[in-house]
Amino acid sequence: MAQSQGWVRRYFRAFCKGFFVAVPVAVTFLDRVACVARVEGASMQPSLNPGGSQTSDVVLLNHWKARNFQVQRGDIVSLVSPKNPEQKIIKRVIALEGDIIRTIGHKNRYVKVPRGHIWVEGDHHGHSFDSNSFGPVSLGLLHAHATHILWPPKRWQKLESVLPPERSPMQREE
């Protein structure tokens, strides 16, 4: 009986040591390197959630690339909503700082993206709450770069950084 209690005690002690090492490592990884997120809504159709409300894509979010604000036109990014800081949104980068963009339904027909900001839009115009509603977004709100679709399995793919030709900036500062 005493031997079995010793084994249980050693097992419990080893489990606790492993647990208290693994949890901080996992949390740090998910916060700083990469995580997964479910995409809801129709704003990014057909790139994400092409089946409408029946399915939700699950994407891999790369925090590392967004950490130094390394974004390009056409990237799909996750960011903190400028209107609701409790919510994260996923959109496509249309223009970078210094670009002049023709808007779709914004109060100004043309907008020059200020320094330290990006212009983001959903692929499904008219069903997207994006920069056309709230203007340029501060790079400080950037959360992650969406790199792959992980679920459903039939949609496994790398997400390409493609800028729709009709949404190219009017003028670019290089």
Results as ranks from 00 to 15, higher is better:
106 H>Y: 05
107 K>T: 10
107 K>Q: 08
107 K>V: 15
108 N>H: 15
108 N>D: 12
108 N>L: 13
108 N>A: 14
108 N>V: 15
109 R>T: 14
110 Y>D: 04
111 V>M: 10
111 V>W: 03
111 V>Y: 11
112 K>I: 13
112 K>Y: 01
113 V>C: 00
113 V>E: 00
113 V>N: 05
114 P>H: 02
114 P>S: 05
114 P>K: 04
115 R>D: 14
115 R>V: 08
116 G>P: 03
116 G>T: 04
116 G>L: 11
117 H>K: 04
117 H>A: 03
117 H>N: 04
117 H>V: 05
118 I>V: 07
119 W>S: 12
120 V>W: 01
120 V>S: 00
120 V>I: 09
120 V>H: 00
121 E>A: 01
121 E>P: 08
122 G>S: 09
122 G>D: 01
122 G>T: 06
123 D>G: 01
124 H>V: 04
125 H>Q: 11
125 H>T: 11
127 H>N: 06
127 H>R: 14
128 S>L: 08
128 S>M: 08
129 F>S: 11
130 D>E: 08
131 S>L: 07
133 S>H: 05
133 S>L: 09
133 S>P: 06
133 S>N: 09
134 F>G: 08
135 G>N: 00
135 G>K: 00
136 P>Q: 02
136 P>V: 08
137 V>F: 02
137 V>N: 03
137 V>R: 00
137 V>Y: 05
138 S>N: 13
138 S>W: 12
138 S>P: 15
138 S>F: 05
139 L>Q: 00
139 L>W: 00
139 L>C: 07
140 G>Y: 04
140 G>V: 11
141 L>K: 05
141 L>E: 01
142 L>V: 02
142 L>R: 02
142 L>C: 08
143 H>W: 13
144 A>K: 08
145 H>Q: 07
145 H>A: 04
145 H>F: 00
146 A>Q: 04
147 T>A: 05
147 T>D: 07
147 T>G: 01
147 T>P: 06
148 H>K: 09
148 H>C: 12
148 H>V: 14
148 H>D: 05
149 I>Y: 05
150 L>D: 02
150 L>N: 03
150 L>S: 06
151 W>P: 11
151 W>Q: 02
151 W>D: 02
151 W>S: 12
152 P>R: 01
154 K>P: 15
155 R>E: 10
156 W>H: 14
156 W>K: 13
157 Q>R: 13
157 Q>D: 14
158 K>F: 12
159 L>A: 08
160 E>K: 06
160 E>P: 13
160 E>W: 06
160 E>L: 13
161 S>M: 09
161 S>V: 08
162 V>F: 01
163 L>G: 13
163 L>K: 13
164 P>H: 09
164 P>G: 07
165 P>W: 11
165 P>N: 11
166 E>R: 07
166 E>A: 06
166 E>N: 15
167 R>H: 14
167 R>G: 11
168 S>K: 13
168 S>R: 15
168 S>F: 13
168 S>Q: 15
168 S>N: 15
